[in-house]
């Protein structure tokens, strides 16, 4: 499955992507393809660059060098007389339509009720008629289990509910690639399950590619077609969930997984 996916034309293609802040190297010469509808989990220690990988694709940060293609088209650059130049805001705006993102801290709009949080972009960015946007939003909010909270404001919701609204808000834009950036890391433990369940449900429906940056190993194993382990700004190992979790090759991944298991209180025998 892994191999067939990778031979299809990728929807996202990172080529020699590096990102540095001053002397600090966040990402170093990353190559990564994501196939249409593929679900890629990215795991790794904090500071390994996995969040930056998503932020570059969402155009929240600009790569220091290298290129990213989305649907075969350059994201950050334009080709002028055979040379790469930085793309303008107009190009970025066009390209962003393919990409959606859910954030660790939800980032709902606190001055809008739930329905408006979800309809605002479809109406004003996609230009949908209001009735259609509302219909789309209500369907999506029902799907994430919040059909009864349309009039509520974000401050009245639990963290898990906020994150489900944020997922609905990103989904109504119907991106081809959806980025989930540690979406359960800011949640109380008892609220993690409801959010992961919603994401699993969306993943099962299939047609959208997903990049899941996560610390939830069980979740990564269940949802992902492919797991990528990053450390020190590079991709150290990648493979199917079985390979990564049951037969890790590199010492760094082995160390990470054992530390993780010890840290999460699982499989600590001594």
């Amino acid at each position: 499955m892994n191999n067939t996916r990778q031979t299809a034309d990728p929807i996202v293609r990172y080529r020699s992507i590096s990102k540095t802040f001053g002397d600090l190297t966040i990402l170093h010469e990353i190559d990564l393809d994501i196939a249409p509808a593929e679900k890629v989990a990215v795991i790794g220690p904090s500071g390994s660059g996995k969040t930056t990988l998503a932020r570059l694709l969402m155009t929240l940060e600009e790569p220091t060098s290298g290129t990213i293609e989305v649907n075969g088209e350059l994201l950050w650059h334009k080709r002028v007389n055979g040379r790469l130049v930085r793309a303008d805001e107009r190009h970025l705006h066009k390209m962003r339509g393919n990409i959606g993102m859910v954030f660790q801290h939800f980032n709902l709009f606190p001055h809008m009720n739930i329905l408006r949080n979800v309809t605002e972009a479809p109406i004003h960015v996609l230009g949908l008629p209001r009735e259609e946007a509302v219909e789309r939003a209500v369907t999506m909010l029902e799907k994430v289990g919040l059909g009864d909270k349309l009039e509520a404001y974000p401050s009245h919701l639990s963290g898990g509910q906020k994150q489900r609204v944020a997922i609905a808000r990103a989904l109504v834009m119907r991106p081809s690639v959806m980025l989930f950036d540690e979406v359960t890391s800011a949640l109380d433990p008892e609220l993690v399950g409801e959010v992961l369940a919603v994401i699993k449900e969306i993943a099962r429906e299939g047609e959208m590619a997903m990049m899941l940056i996560t610390h939830e190993m069980d979740f990564a194993r269940d949802v992902a077609d492919r797991v990528i382990f990053t450390d020190g700004g590079t991709i150290v190992e990648e493979g199917s969930p079985e390979q990564i979790f049951h037969d890790p090759q590199s010492p760094r991944l082995q160390a990470f997984l054992s530390r993780f298991r010890a840290g999460s209180g699982k499989e600590v025998m001594r």
Partner: peptide
């Protein structure tokens, strides 16, 4: 985060 959410939703 509000700026970033606005970018992610592709607001001008």
């Amino acid at each position: 985060g509000q700026w970033e959410a606005a970018t992610a939703l592709n607001f001008s």
